[in-house]
């Protein structure tokens, strides 16, 4: 029963939603809508529990006096302050302050830092003559040049060349990759809906 019931729930709910998406029979619509709403609520619950787990993990590290424990204290403190501010007054100035002056600069600078990492990587690829990475970097630089100089004034061919590269080789390559992703997703999904994969039972 411990296994049969979850498998039955996964199969039933999955097939109801899938049939509604593909065939759209009117009689199935309300059931599918309810299931989608339940899934939406469950995803929010999972997010909350995941956050709680993160906090508990770092508190336990702090209690065990692990070397990185003090950083964990900063994490837990920031988590609690943000969560309590967000729950108590979601549209308050405190939440806005946290987002604009803590969260935004941290996220933006972390991404900006990647520019420095990228230039070091480009240098290293060239320095080590990495055979597989060299064409990607060389071609990438050529494409970047075409992009940044896509001006009629410099050459009327450049903007058209940029458009053509995006329209033909990049589109074709990305289309093949997207088809691969879609096929992979369908295969993985079907394994769940045919109960070949049962991750919810821990198998």
């Amino acid at each position: 029963m411990k296994r049969v019931l979850p498998v039955a729930v996964a199969l039933m709910t999955g097939w109801i939603v899938l049939l509604d998406m593909l065939l759209e029979p009117a009689w199935l619509g309300p059931s599918a809508r309810i299931l989608l709403e339940i899934a939406l609520v469950l995803s929010a619950c999972a997010l909350l529990y995941g956050t709680a787990h993160l906090g508990v993990t770092h508190v336990s590290r702090l209690v065990r006096h692990e070397p990185e424990g003090l950083y964990g204290a900063v994490l837990v403190g920031a988590l609690l302050v943000t969560f309590i501010s967000g729950v108590a007054a979601p549209t308050s100035g405190a939440m806005t302050w946290i987002f604009r002056y803590l969260y935004s600069p941290l996220q933006a600078t972390l991404l900006g830092l990647m520019t420095f990492v990228l230039i070091c990587a480009v240098y290293r690829v060239a320095r080590l003559h990495q055979k597989r990475a060299l064409p990607v970097v060389g071609l990438g630089l050529a494409l970047l040049l075409i992009q940044v100089l896509a001006s009629d004034t410099i050459s009327p061919i450049l903007p058209d060349l940029r458009d053509w590269i995006m329209r033909v080789p990049v589109t074709a390559g990305m289309r093949g990759i997207l088809l691969g992703i879609a096929l992979g997703m369908m295969a993985a999904g079907m394994r769940l809906l045919l109960a070949s994969d049962r991750p919810y039972t821990g198998e």
């Binding site: 230039i119 070091c120 480009v122 240098y123 060239a126 970097v137 060389g138 970047l144 040049l145 940044v148």
Partner: peptide, 28 residues
């Protein structure tokens, strides 16, 4: 500005060229 994008390309291309053709010390 678009000037910045061109400068970015120049920086990356400079790094690439330096890596490719730059003088190597004895260890390298």
């Amino acid at each position: 500005s678009a000037d910045g994008f061109v400068a970015l390309w120049a920086a990356l291309a400079g790094g690439f060229a330096w890596g490719l053709f730059g003088r190597r010390d004895k260890t390298e």
